[in-house]
Design a protein around this nucleic acid. Structure first.
Length: 584
RNA sequence: CGGGCUAUAGCGCAGUUUGGUAGCGCGCACGGUUCGGGACCGUGAGGUCGUGAGUUCAAAUCUCACUAGCCCGACCA
């Protein structure tokens, strides 16, 4: 491609709403343009990279037997009512209706459509297992779009679904681990180091689930890892060993006056007791309108996602002060589990052994002391709802966990039969009996992957593309697009292009400095400078964007040398040595 | 949705306190000099000052309402 003909709006300064490097660089290098909050247009350079990532995904999906589809994004609401997600999903689902007032959704994922299609054609156990996928646009009415392309209202996602014989967990597990392997290769081929993390399955339902994370300070996920045994988990799911604390029965329940002492810290100071002797009581309201008291040891925090998952509701929120008072007669700051009516009581495991402790008395300015769990109150269950973080003990080996932040690029789930059952998907088994298949689902955020590549591969001057996803392989830079330099550059351009190397030639009549800076910003792995002096000596100059190394090559060999270097570099990112030639 | 903030030329910003009819840098166009790391000189184009109402002789500036966007939190690929 010729730079002068290509739409590449580079900029010295990025708009102030870009706060992370990948976002700033995507805008400055002319990869994307914001159309509205959370909605981005891919410009030619950005789209080239996106297509390469898609192609890598496609190759890896096909390798494990995936069938690629192209599905509509406008979906009849009927399908979503069948799966019940029309009602469950809440406001992030874009809903609309046509002139006949038929309901539609803009698909945020494609379980419904794929299940609908498979239902009609799946007849026999011989058709299983089946893996289908597509790469396409998704819509989510995100509450807060963020970080450019990282979290948008529209985004490209690869989503795959697998179908397996009923109760055949081995078959499901086989595809699940094939996916896990494919995901590792995909990210590796994109030049990314990802960390597979045990995760929460969230609203999707299902059992096992694994997220593919890239470590990044701006990541939206918090992950804990044990350096000793390698345990890794999203904090939505992570557990830890319970600290050994000795509690003693201190006698019978006693009311104690605690005027205006509302927080754990204040209470701890006021009574001169450590926070691990206090039971924190948080009052939640579920999306079903139920009230729940969540109990946890005073020095710990409740993880709302864990609590929500246990309760099996789509959302929870802290109950408003007035509401807790009027509905449950619980004054804010003095809440406790003793004698409460009208609310479920759920306790973290840390509360299970607590004796001789302090809780709110549900009476303004009073707490109870000498509280024993099990005696003075009985929660419906002791479960793990605590926030696990730095310094907690690894549940596997007891080592000290540390936490870090990550960006979620992919997520794989075992779904079970929720969707197949809802849609009435069945097949006949060997014995001629009707069965319901198990399902798995597997997603990758495409633009987000591109953003992560930039996040991990850039310097102060711009992007440093891995060859596998770079919009071009070689950037030809004639210092002057005129005379001998122009001629040599054009010749090299033709030779390289004909041999399958993707070349961007900077044929603009710009000053050298401008061209160099744009080249660094755009970040194509190999830059070849065709300058007056070296050309007079029959040479051109190769600069490797990543290392900054440069060397001279004889003009007459340049095409073949570059061709080999590009090939070698592409092979480095090939998976298992199977990678063949250019990513296009 | 809760908390914080912003809105003036394509981008980055000043001007708002104390009302007087809009400016700087980058970018863009033209001319000239320059020409291997974002050159210089000159000329020029480009603005409903987020929207609407109000106060006033006069509003980017003061008042009210609204809208959009950004940051922190809850949701997700």
């Amino acid at each position: 491609m010729r730079y002068s003909r290509m739409f590449i709006p580079t900029a010295k300064e990025a708009p102030k709403d870009a706060v992370i490097q990948s976002h700033i660089l995507m805008i400055r290098a002319g990869l994307v343009k914001k159309v509205s909050s959370g909605i981005y247009a891919l410009l030619p350079l950005g789209y080239r990279t996106v297509k390469k990532v898609e192609q890598i995904i496609r190759e890896e999906m096909d390798r494990i037997g995936g069938n690629e589809f192209y599905l509509p994004v406008l979906i009849p609401g009927e399908l979503w009512k069948t799966s019940h997600r029309w009602y469950d999903m809440g406001q992030e689902l874009f809903r609309l209706s046509d002139r006949g007032e038929q309901d539609y959704v803009l698909a945020p994922t494609h379980e419904e459509v794929f299940t609908y299609i498979v239902k009609d054609h799946l007849k026999s156990y011989r058709d299983l297992p089946l893996t289908v996928y597509q790469i396409g646009l998704k819509f989510r009415d995100e509450i807060r779009p963020r970080f450019g392309v990282m979290r948008g209202k529209t985004f490209i996602m690869k989503d795959a679904y697998s179908f397996h014989p009923e109760k055949d967990d081995d078959s499901l597990h086989k595809t699940y681990s094939d996916m896990s392997g494919a995901y590792r290769r995909i990210f590796l081929r994109c030049g990314l180091e990802t960390i597979p993390v045990a995760a929460d399955s969230g609203a999707m339902g299902g059992s096992q689930s694994e997220e593919f994370m890239v470590s990044a300070a701006i990541g939206e996920e918090e992950i804990v890892r044990c350096p000793d045994c390698g345990y890794v988990a999203n904090t939505e799911k992570a557990t830890c060993r319970l600290e050994e604390i000795t509690y003693e029965d201190t006698g019978k329940l006693t009311l104690v006056e605690t005027p205006n002492v509302k927080t754990i810290d204040d209470l701890s100071d006021f009574l001169g007791i450590g926070p691990d002797r206090l039971i924190k009581t948080l009052c939640y309201k579920t999306s079903d309108g139920e009230y729940v008291l969540a109990l946890i040891r005073g020095d710990l925090e409740v993880h709302e996602t864990k609590l929500k998952n246990y309760l099996g509701v789509s959302d929870i929120e802290k109950a408003k002060g007035e509401e807790a008072l009027s509905k449950l007669k619980i004054p804010m700051g003095f809440a406790g589990p003793v004698g409460v009516r009208g609310a479920r009581i759920v306790a973290d495991k840390s509360v299970g052994m607590m004796k001789g402790c302090v809780t709110g008395a549900n009476r303004l300015d009073y707490h109870y002391k000498n509280v024993n769990a099990g005696r003075d109150f009985v929660p419906e269950r002791y479960i793990d709802i605590r926030v696990v973080g730095d310094g907690d003990s690894c549940p596997e080996c007891g080592g000290r966990l540390f936490s870090f932040r990550g960006i979620e690029l992919g997520h794989i789930f075992k779904l079970g039969d929720k969707y197949s059952r809802a849609f009435g998907v069945t097949y006949l088994d060997e014995g001629g009996e009707t069965k319901v298949p198990l399902m798995g689902c597997y997603g990758i955020g495409v633009e987000r992957t591109v953003a992560a590549v930039i996040e991990q591969n850039h310097d102060k001057d711009g992007i440093i593309w891995p060859m596998s996803v770079s919009p071009f392989h070689v950037h030809l830079l004639p210092v002057k697009y005129d005379g001998d330099m122009k001629e040599a550059a054009e010749l090299l351009y033709t030779e390289l292009s004909e041999s399958g190397v993707e070349v961007l030639i900077d044929d603009r009549e710009e000053r050298a400095g401008v061209k160099f800076n744009d080249a660094d910003l755009i970040g194509i792995p190999f830059r070849v400078t065709i300058g007056g002096k070296s050309l007079a000596e029959g040479e051109v100059e190769l600069k490797v964007r990543a290392s900054g190394e440069s060397k001279r090559i004889a003009v007459k060999n340049a095409a073949s040398v570059l061709q080999n270097m590009v090939r070698k570099e592409l092979d480095r990112y090939g998976a298992d040595g199977h990678f063949e030639g250019s990513a296009q």
